[in-house]
């Protein structure tokens, strides 16, 4: 289930099937055991317009192995069996979902014990049928809120979201950056005016310092490209490096908390 036991919460993204499905399962379990609250299982797509080079390359590697949405949901089911309580969501572009059919998609998620989904290129106006099918199976619908979203849009995004709201830290694509944009804190404040759901901040959060900084104003941080970059480096042996990376985030967090 989607809950943030830690403060701040950690949403960890990985591209499933990079380098293979078995490794993705191990990496996800390592992330959970090191302290991730929610796992985003990324579905590789041929045309990832919202993603930067790191996740683009991961998608290409996964697609060379012909990894499909159905297989990613299968990995989700395995993770669910091994770790009954962790939040699990599918992170995907809309086209593979349409190919499966919205109803089939919702049914498979529910059968697999996955908590919900975030569809990157599905805005609230186009999501009516998706939302009602997901609701009918008690699945969470996470939507993106952007610094460019008007208040009117933020209100609609907040109403349509379940589980948490994903606040995009800056205009741009996924990927690491040196500094966290000032946009993020302001956006979280604006989102909170419309909802009591947890707000997670993503896009460009890649190290302990940024993770802590996000913790100051948001319920959780999403870390994606930094994890995927470790997988790119270590391939099938990446679970260890990924686990160590998350433990280090948490250790620094404890230190910072005890200092203050």
């Amino acid at each position: 289930m989607i809950a943030f036991a830690h403060k701040p919460g950690l949403v960890a993204y990985l591209t499933c099937g990079d380098p293979d499905l078995q490794s993705s399962r191990e990496i996800a379990l390592a992330l959970i055991d090191a302290g991730a609250d929610v796992i985003e299982l990324g579905v590789p797509f041929s045309d990832p317009v919202a993603d930067g080079p790191v996740i683009q390359r991961a998608s290409e590697r996964a697609l060379r192995a012909e990894v499909s949405l159905t297989q990613v949901i299968g990995v989700g089911a395995e993770i669910r069996k091994a770790r009954p309580k962790t939040g699990l969501i599918i992170f995907t572009y809309i086209n593979p979902v349409l190919r499966l059919g919205l109803d089939g998609f919702a049914k498979r998620l529910a059968d697999a014990g996955i908590d919900g989904a975030l569809v990157t290129d599905l805005i609230v106006e186009e999501a009516g049928e998706y939302i009602s099918l997901m609701r009918s199976r008690e699945l969470a619908t996470v939507f993106l809120a952007a610094p460019t979203s008007t208040d009117d849009r933020l209100r609609r995004i907040a109403e349509a979201s379940r589980g948490f709201v994903y606040a995009v830290s800056r205009t741009g694509i996924t990927g690491e950056q040196k500094q966290l944009a000032g946009d993020a804190a302001e956006l979280v404040r604006r989102v909170r005016r419309f909802t009591s759901l947890p707000v997670a901040v993503g896009f460009g959060v890649s190290n302990a310092e940024q993770f802590q900084a996000v913790g100051e104003f948001a319920d959780a941080a999403v870390i994606g490209s930094a994890i995927v970059a470790l997988v790119e480096k270590d391939g099938r042996n990446a679970a260890k490096a990924v686990e160590e990376f998350v433990r280090a985030l948490r250790r620094q967090q404890v230190r910072a908390n005890s200092i203050s």
């Binding site: 317009v49 919202a50 809309i94 990157t120 290129d121 599905l122 805005i123 106006e125 186009e126 939507f143 993106l144 809120a145 952007a146 610094p147 460019t148 979203s149 008007t150 849009r153 995004i157 995009v168 205009t171 741009g172």
Partner: peptide, 10 residues
């Protein structure tokens, strides 16, 4: 229709 990341909606 419109199938884009939220950032582009404005």
């Amino acid at each position: 229709g419109r199938y884009v990341p939220e950032t582009l909606m404005a």
